[in-house]
Design a protein around this nucleic acid. Structure first.
Lengths: 98, 98
DNA sequence: CCGCAAAGTCGCCGTTCGGCTACAATCCCT
DNA sequence: AGGGATTGTAGCCGAACGGCGACTTTGCGG
């Protein structure tokens, strides 16, 4: 899901934390931040420190991806000659799961 | 491309800025930050403020996406009962492309 | 090789951070 | 409704932030 603002980060962090049954205190310990900081980041604090935010995402096993002109999509793609039409392969599999 | 650390942010911001032929000064003005701040973020400053980072990405027309348990995808996924093991399907296809 | 623009560094300054303790408000679970 | 756990607030503190002006260094075109 797209992330544009600090509030977006807050909502997703809260959602991920709850879906894992973690308490703010537990998340705080796992991410090496204060419990109050978790309160604030979940509220969308715009001036929170980048490094802490990233540690928090890591503690929740969340990952970030960047897109845009000049940003490589993937680190390394395979040989194009080995490319397959994924959709047709899947269709074939569904017709005959062998 | 995956982003894990402040240094990753720095590298991508720099790369995107250059690919757009922008100067640090221009980017700073567009993102409403100081020029020195751009120097620091491109060097991977871990304690940079989240909001400024996001403004900078916006100024460069870069977008962030979050992935992980509990984070809704843009597209709804299908019925889990229809899930297939993509890797094994592909392996089978490569062994016998029919 | 020169010269200018871009990039990086330094110090000053007022502001804000984030941890902490303590307390209030909520939420659950029984 | 009762009571512990969870979450949200408030204030204090030392530390770091980010803007700014002034340099220095680097890089590139002529």
């Amino acid at each position: 899901m797209r992330v544009r603002t600090p509030v977006d980060f807050g909502l997703m962090i809260r959602q991920a934390r709850r879906s894992r049954g973690m308490t703010q205190q537990q998340l705080a310990r796992a991410a090496l931040v204060g419990r109050q900081w978790v309160v604030e980041i979940e509220a969308g604090k715009p001036r929170a420190e980048l490094g802490m935010v990233l540690r928090t995402l890591a503690a929740l096993d969340l990952s970030l991806t960047m897109h845009g002109e000049g940003i490589p999509e993937l680190r390394r793609s395979g040989d194009p000659s080995e490319a397959v039409d994924l959709q047709s392969v899947l269709d074939a599999h569904r017709r005959n799961p062998s």
